[in-house]
Design a protein around this nucleic acid. Structure first.
Length: 643
RNA sequence: GCCGGAGUAGCUCAGUGGCCAGAGCAGCCGACUUGUAAUCGGCAGGUCAGGGGUUCGACUCCCCUCUCCGGCUCCA
């Protein structure tokens, strides 16, 4: 017998008998054997103890490989379930995958557990880890597996519905065993439980079985695990950093916005500082639209029920709308608007339109109200009342390509101006339930895809994720700490032009239906502001900061101060001339995250100089006044939007 | 909406059935006249989220409601 094993570096090793991945790793070198976690045979990921029986291409994965981390976390989930069953024997266990930065497992406990139980479970996991139980894989016939799991309803369901991801395949079921613990699983796993050392159970949450709202709700335990203590600590610090960026906390500290119980959940009040920021964003957006072919419209906040019947909102989204308002003098019902489109459509319908008029682009910073479920509300990022940078474009289908490409460029450049440069897209295609003609869908989807290709923006296709009325592009940005946020949405709509019988007169003097594009680029101004705050951790770019310059005086510098103020009065500045120590003034200035702290004392008065502290931490002293102003102008420069 | 956690001064938080509920910061008053991350002293600030109950006695224990936080589902 002769087995040739080809390694990733193309070298070939010859063996005279079957061997495991661990044997192979040990033969390659002691350190790789020590670090080995799992392996790949002919492209198939598998356990380290799998026997290599034939000539094959093999690759050993060590704790340095990303894939090993996923394996570790998946095994962590198994050990979590094992610990839970040891402590709470009557628990029913569901599924437990690895996820980004960690893992979870879903359980149905006899009595719901509490957060403090996590410590106990963690302890039990450590105990299991110390026992270094081997993970072994077995294949069982389906009926035998059903017997083993006969009092585990979720496992039975998994076997019966043949979910391949959980190790069920064509009458045969793969299970993993470590110690006395058994679980349905495709694997692979770490060689033994001793590989689990640096982990932490992080939170307890509710989760519906298989993610379906009508299914029973299980308790989900989240955890994180790593190969080294350093990585675990790094992760935990990263979590703390993310907490520091929380826009709700920063919003309070920087006096940007607030809420009040009297308003009801999901509604926010913008304080003066926040309003400056918000107005800057809105003005920037408005001027970009004004200079690029949009006409501005303004529309009310409520409309009669007939409007929402025609638009289909009452049929499809009634539960997402605030309840109707009624008046005493008539039987009319009015609804707060959850979208602006029906109003823009009414503006369009107010006149006969010619193909020469198209495309018509109506823009509005439109405030909408949506009855979001209480549990999903999340500061400005998910509010009930918010304002969209909304526009509706009415176009001929022939112009669709140009419009979409133009929009994509517009949005990317706009996002760039706010410092978001890492942008990706989702192209959502026709869902199962849809309206309209197949050929229109095809044309619209092609327009979207073509625009994405021309923009050279990386995108993935979200099959069947489009709205029922048309396909869409969503743009996601990546923030400073790597989180992705969806901002822009560009949606093609075949339905509303039909619902409202929209038309225009074409060159043959015939009435033809236009296509509509719904688009919000920043999305919701509230949400966008929240994301900006988190992205910059409150250190807003100079042009957006509520107070751009804080001038700190030391001693009697009135004349010098007046001279400087004259030169800076186009900026939003404040003057701190309190008779307190400079250190305290600087402390206050930093606390409010003001981009420029200008310090002037008597020395500066005498020498016509200034000292500048920048938000970046950079500090300069004894700078000539003119030079200082130049530097300030640079930091506070507003970006220019150009298509 | 569901599961779990929480709600004490403007903010951050102490206070586990027993006198009039505390601290730091912020605020106000006074002193200090200050050159790179919090000067000192004083004053004021509370229906302990709201309502009901248990108890001689409740911030503390129980029930209901509201709000917030972490998730799940949802996001036109």
């Amino acid at each position: 017998m002769n087995i040739n094993i080809t390694l990733p570096d193309k070298s070939v090793r010859k063996y005279s008998k079957e061997l495991t991945g661990y044997d192979l790793a040990s033969d390659i070198g002691r350190s790789i054997a020590k670090e080995a976690v799992c392996m790949e045979i002919n492209g198939q990921l598998t356990d380290l103890n799998t026997l290599i029986k034939d000539d094959s291409k093999c690759r050993i994965f060590t704790s340095n490989d990303q894939i090993s981390l996923e394996v570790l976390r998946h095994s962590s989930a198994h050990i979590l379930a094992q610990a839970v069953l040891n402590l709470f024997p009557n628990t029913k266990y569901g599924v437990g995958p690895s996820i980004e930065d960690g893992f979870y497992y879903d359980f149905l406990f006899e009595n719901n557990i509490k957060e403090e139980d996590l410590l106990k479970i963690e302890k039990e996991m450590h105990k299991i880890a110390q026992e270094k139980q081997n993970f072994t894989k077995e294949y069982l016939p389906e009926d035998e597996a059903l017997m083993i799991f006969s009092n585990q309803q979720f496992k039975e369901e998994l076997i019966n519905t043949a979910d391949k991801d959980e190790g069920v395949n064509a009458g045969e079921v793969s299970i993993y065993k470590n110690g006395k613990f058994l679980d349905l699983c495709r694997g692979p796993h770490i060689p033994n439980t001793g590989y689990l050392r640096h982990f932490k159970l992080t939170k307890l949450a509710g989760a519906y079985w298989r993610g379906i709202e009508t299914n029973p709700q299980l308790q989900r335990i989240y955890g994180t695990s790593w190969f080294s203590k350093e990585e675990l600590n790094k992760y935990l610090t990263r979590q703390k950093e993310a907490e520091k960026r929380d826009h709700r906390k920063l919003g309070r500290e920087l006096k940007l916005f607030t809420s009040a119980d009297e308003l009801g959940p999901g509604q926010y009040l913008w304080q003066p500082n926040g309003s400056i920021l918000r107005n800057q964003i809105e003005e920037f957006s408005k001027s970009a639209h004004k200079n690029n072919g949009y006409e501005f419209v303004n529309t009310p906040h409520i409309g009669r029920s007939i409007l929402w019947e025609t638009s289909g909102h009452l049929d499809h989204y009634k539960e997402g709308m605030y309840p109707a308002l009624t008046t005493e003098d008539t039987n009319d019902k009015y609804y707060l608007k959850p979208m602006n489109c029906p109003f823009h459509i009414l503006v369009y319908k107010n006149d006969i339109r010619s193909y020469r008029d198209l495309p018509i682009r109506y823009f509005e910073l439109g405030s909408v109200y949506r009855m979001e479920k209480t549990g999903v509300l999340h500061g400005l990022l998910r509010a009930r009342g918010f304002t969209q940078d909304d526009a509706h474009i009415f176009t001929t289908i022939d112009n669709l390509n140009d419009e979409i490409l133009n929009l994509l460029t517009f949005s990317i450049k706009l996002l760039n101006c706010f410092g978001f440069t890492d942008i990706e897209a989702d192209l959502s295609t026709r869902p199962k339930d849809y309206i309209g003609e197949d050929k229109d869908w095809e044309k619209a989807t092609n327009s979207l895809e073509e625009a994405l290709n021309q923009q050279k923006i990386s995108y993935k296709i979200a099959q069947g994720e489009g709205a029922f009325y048309g396909p869409k592009i969503d743009l996601h940005i990546k923030d400073a700490i790597g989180r992705r946020w969806q901002l822009t949405t560009i949606q093609i709509d075949f339905a509303q032009p039909n619902n409202f019988s929209l038309d225009y007169v074409n060159s043959d003097n015939k009435k033809v239906r236009p296509v509509m594009i719904h688009r919000a680029l920043l999305g919701s101004i509230e949400r966008f502001t929240g994301i900006l705050i988190e992205h910059y951790a409150g250190h807003l770019p100079g042009w957006l900061a509520p107070t751009q310059i804080n001038i700190l005086t030391i001693g009697n510098v009135d004349e010098h101060l007046q001279k400087i103020v004259k030169k800076l009065n186009k900026y939003r500045f404040s003057i701190d001339n309190r008779n307190i120590r400079l250190g305290e003034k600087i402390h206050d200035s930093k606390k409010m995250k003001i981009p420029i702290t200008l310090i002037i004392g008597e020395n500066d008065r005498n020498n016509n100089t200034v000292a500048i502290n920048y938000a970046s931490g950079e500090e300069t002293k004894d700078i000539n006044l003119e030079e200082g102003i130049k530097s300030i102008n640079k930091v506070l420069k507003k970006p220019t939007f150009k298509l």
